[in-house]
Nucleic acid binder design. Structure first.
Lengths: 230, 230
DNA sequence: TTTGTATTCCATAATTCCTTGGAATACTGT
DNA sequence: ACAGTATTCCAAGGAATTATGGAATACAAA
């Protein structure tokens, strides 16, 4: 019994529990794999419920319910345009929170590495943001964005070429010859750049994967190009 | 149907789900009020299961189960000493994660403010870390640590005086006369400093609350005094 | 106003989480 | 070895979460 009962006036333990239960709502929102997938998508660009549904393998109403949970936790906001409602991250602090939770899991849970390797396959040659920045200055690389066009349109690395991964094999000739290629995608747990590098390498090109995706580039304070809407 | 089906080779959605489920384990661990209370305590100092049980109003086995969850998520580690097992945060990154989740909730969920006010009572006069640092240099303040002695022993602000909140009314005479008092405790959602300031003010002293607690001071990279064990 | 579409609300079943006593385990200290 | 203590494991009931169709809502477009 090291600790006294702290019984000078004794703060109400029910009120304390109510407070921490409220604070836990953010954790709860982060505590579901499908919701993390949704956040990962929203970290790229705002998207409608329908579009998110198509991308994550759940029913429409289920996705809507998850989005309600995220919204109630203050992690996402909505904007109406025409008859669609576009969800987006509520701010850069939310992106930071998502990344920190994800990276903490990766750093401290041994299983993550195993499951990630199982999903992503072999790790291709990678370069860091710093290496890419240096290489861009020297004109050494062609930077390739292999995400869906909508995400490229929302924001992309300056000077990046957009060829979505599912069109890559048919559009190889658009990539300047005799350059090294650096492909990037949504982030460290996105398969697109892995697959792109594999395909490019099989086609005889010299290709690398940027070790992080666009959200991490943005979070690092590096410049991005965004079309800006209308 | 904005997004193509991404069906070039189609990564296995089950493996993707398995990966994000793993990443979600950290969020799950943060998604329970009682576990947040435990983290808040562990942010002060390492503690045994028994000691945590006394402090949080749950059964021993319940606390043990929560600690297992936190440990499985990699957020805490254990150290045996004698017959007790001491739990502590796994690292400063875990503290950063806890703080970011908590502060995000506070910033983005309106209810938090209301429930916090209900628990903490009236907000006393507060000063920031910067103001305190400036004032210490000028010898203007007596810094008062009102947490339990064990937490003070683990780490405290340089030069702070230790008087636990439940002994404060009996030990008022230990506080140097004719100085302003700055009381601090576990953090923004701890009542101790609120109560201390109220008691001191009623006793005719000039007292303020440091707006954050020791963990935030430490996280800001400011110096602390720790006894070091043994 | 009417029609059509995107999204949310509701009810429900399957699953997982929380809490708890009692039993089992892993040590320490003698 | 033996007794004692701190902690974890186990089983079980109750509560909360998740996924899902069908109905209701909130708009926009005509």
């Amino acid at each position: 019994m090291e600790y006294k009962s702290e019984g000078y006036t004794m703060a109400d333990p029910e009120k304390k529990a109510a407070l921490f239960d409220q604070l836990a709502r953010v954790g709860k929102a982060l505590g579901n794999g499908k919701r993390l997938e949704l956040l990962d998508l929203l970290a790229q660009s705002e998207r409608s419920v329908e579009s998110l549904t198509a991308a994550c393998g759940l029913g429409l109403t289920t996705v809507s319910a998850h989005l309600q949970t995220l919204k109630a936790a203050g992690l996402v906001t909505t904007r109406r345009e025409g008859q669609k409602i576009h969800y987006s991250l509520a701010g850069d602090d939310v992106l930071a929170l998502y990344r920190l939770a994800r990276d903490t899991a990766a750093a401290r849970i041994a299983d993550v590495e195993r499951v990630a390797a199982d999903y992503l396959g072999d790790t291709p040659g990678q370069i860091s943001r710093d290496e890419l920045l240096a290489g861009i200055g020297a004109g050494r690389y062609t930077v390739l964005d292999v995400r869906p066009v909508e995400e490229y349109d929302a924001a992309h690395l300056p000077g990046a070429l957009s060829i979505p991964i599912d069109e890559l094999s048919a559009r190889l000739d658009e990539i300047p010859a005799d350059t090294q290629i650096v492909a990037y995608c949504r982030g460290p747990y996105c398969v697109f750049a892995h697959d792109a590098v594999e395909l490019l390498t099989r086609s005889g090109r010299s290709a690398f994967r940027l070790e992080d995706g666009l959200p991490e580039w943005h979070a690092a304070g590096l410049p991005i190009t965004s079309a800006g809407r209308a």
